[in-house]
């Protein structure tokens, strides 16, 4: 029996398909979910999300949210998630620079936090985008 995975963000449903294995970064560390996993509800932290199906692998950047496993149905409620191949590298690089600059200027605590979140997001995007680039150039 396969896992059925749904990744939902406030904007749209990003991913909906069957999967063999899902690897998620959570508050208690990275966990892998295989079919027939026990019911689980946990919090996702910013990181990389890996979905395996057969030999194919999908890589996503995720900035946090909630994960629910229920009878082989996995739902991920993400604040923001993007597939590695959909990352716009130039834009992410620019966002990273902008966020770094904002953090250096001594701004208010709120602005700092916003910039920090933006920085984490762009770094993650670049990291996953870099990974699939490497893989496709090897094959």
């Amino acid at each position: 029996m396969n896992l059925h995975l749904e990744i939902i963000t406030p904007e749209k449903i990003i991913f909906e398909s069957e999967a063999d294995e899902i690897i998620v970064p959570t508050l208690n560390g990275q966990i892998g979910i295989l079919p027939n996993h026990i019911g689980l509800l946990t919090k996702i932290i910013p990181g990389e999300l890996i979905i395996r199906k057969g030999s194919a692998q999908t890589l996503l950047a995720i900035t946090g949210g909630f994960l629910e496993v229920n009878n082989n149905n996995v739902s991920i409620l993400a604040d923001y998630a993007v597939k590695a191949e959909d990352v716009e590298i130039a834009r992410a690089q620019e966002a990273q620079k902008r966020a770094e600059k904002l953090m250096q200027e001594k701004t208010t605590e709120k602005d700092f936090k916003v910039a920090q979140a933006e920085l984490i997001k762009s770094i993650l995007e670049l990291r996953v985008a870099g990974k699939i680039k490497k893989r496709s150039s090897q094959s």
Partner: peptide, 14 residues
């Protein structure tokens, strides 16, 4: 859901 998976893990606690 409650019938099918009476044991649900919460990490961290609920």
């Amino acid at each position: 859901i409650k019938r099918n998976s009476p044991y649900t893990l919460f990490e961290p606690s609920p």
